[in-house]
Simulated scan of single mutants.
Amino acid sequence: MIEAMTTKARLALALLIGASVLTAGCATRPDPSDEAAVHAYEQANDPIEPLNRYFFELNRFADIVALKPAAELYDGVLPRFAKQGVRHFLDNLRSPVILANDVLQGEWERAETTATRFGINTTVGVLGLDDPASDYGYSRHGEDFGQTLAVYGVEEGPYLFLPVLGPAPPRDLTGVAVDSFFDPLTYIYWDGPYTVPVTRFVLNGVDMRARNLGVLNEIERTSIDFYATVRSLYRQSRAEEIANGQTNVEDLPDISNISFE
């Protein structure tokens, strides 16, 4: 069974690479004389944009027919305390991955916070269904191996949007793969090797979609180009996560020449 799935995965990867090569030529570089267009092209860093847009529309279709209705049902049926319990539980399960990346980044205080949160919420919080650690001053933060690679200077790479996964540039896609080795749930075999991770993945997707129903509707309604907006928001979000929420003063606009007279 596993061998068959591995063969299918290799075939899918081969098809993806082949399609990428075939469509890469569609995202042609603009005329060098058009500086604004060249700058926008380089900022987008999206050499296989036609393929990415195709997968983006596939995901939108899946969202319309399955994920969004499931999220609306989940949001409408479950009381607030139950949804909070699900979120706390899923966040607590993520703690070993966050801790591993805290340590790899040399963020010892954050690692201590993560370990303390996990201990408190797993015991006092009843397996993570509640979050008393936050009440004790141990606020949650997220880390993943994609962020760890960024801390050590690895570039994001060209933008890539995949079915189901969504935005997944090479650096962050590598991070997803490595984080699976840090995740204890990867090694739990319950009615098959993928049951537990897939169940967690689906539940997390439905919960996150439910929490962002209004936000995503508003973004789509007000976006001239929904795909480009999602791409931009993803990069902004990742940049903030990598910086641990700290503003890089080098990215701020130069206001030295502004006159207040």
Results as ranks from 00 to 15, higher is better:
Ser95Cys: 08
Asp254Asn: 15
Gly175Lys: 11
Asn212Gln: 11
Pro158Ala: 12
Leu233Phe: 15
Val21Trp: 12
Asn204His: 05
Gly106Ala: 06
Asp131Glu: 00
Gly166Cys: 07
Val97Met: 06
Ser259Ala: 07
Asn92Gly: 05
Val124Phe: 01
Glu3Pro: 00
Val151Glu: 15
Asp183Glu: 11
Arg80His: 03
Asp130Lys: 13
Ala210Glu: 01
Tyr136Asp: 09
Phe81Thr: 09
Arg171Asp: 01
Ala62Leu: 07
Phe145Ser: 00
Gly76Thr: 04
Tyr159Trp: 13
Leu78Tyr: 03
Tyr227Asn: 03
Arg231Met: 01
Ala66Trp: 10
Arg94Val: 03
Asn204Glu: 10
Ala133Pro: 02
Ala115Trp: 09
Asp31Asn: 03
Arg231Asn: 05
Val151His: 15
Phe61Ile: 13
Gly18Arg: 14
His39Asp: 12
Asn217Leu: 04
Ala36Gln: 13
Phe61Cys: 05
Ala40Leu: 09
Arg10Val: 14
Ala115Arg: 13
Asp31Leu: 11
Leu129Lys: 02
Ala70Asn: 01
Val202Gly: 03
Glu35Arg: 15
Asp254Leu: 13
Pro167His: 02
Leu15Pro: 01
Ala168Asn: 12
Val176His: 14
Val38Asn: 07
Val164Asp: 07
Thr7Trp: 04
Glu112Gln: 11
Arg80Phe: 11
Met1Ala: 11
Glu218Ile: 03
Val154Asn: 07
Tyr54Val: 10
Gly245Pro: 07
Val86Pro: 07
Cys26Val: 15
Asp130Arg: 14
Ser180Glu: 13
Phe118Ala: 10
Lys83Trp: 00
Tyr159Val: 13
Thr174Lys: 01
Asp63Gln: 04
Tyr54Lys: 04
Asp179Met: 05
Leu90Arg: 04
Ala82Met: 06
Thr195Gln: 06
Tyr189Leu: 00
Thr6Ser: 12
Ser232His: 10
Gln43Trp: 03
Thr186Val: 03
Asp31Ser: 01
Glu261Asp: 10
Gly153Ser: 13
Pro163Arg: 11
Thr222Gly: 08
Leu93Ile: 08
Val151Trp: 10
Gly137Ala: 00
Arg231His: 02
Leu13Arg: 11
Pro169Cys: 10
Asn121Arg: 12
Arg110Asn: 09
Asp34His: 04
Arg94Asp: 07
Trp108Lys: 13
Thr148Asn: 06
Glu240Arg: 00
Trp190Ser: 08
Ala40Ile: 04
Thr229Leu: 03
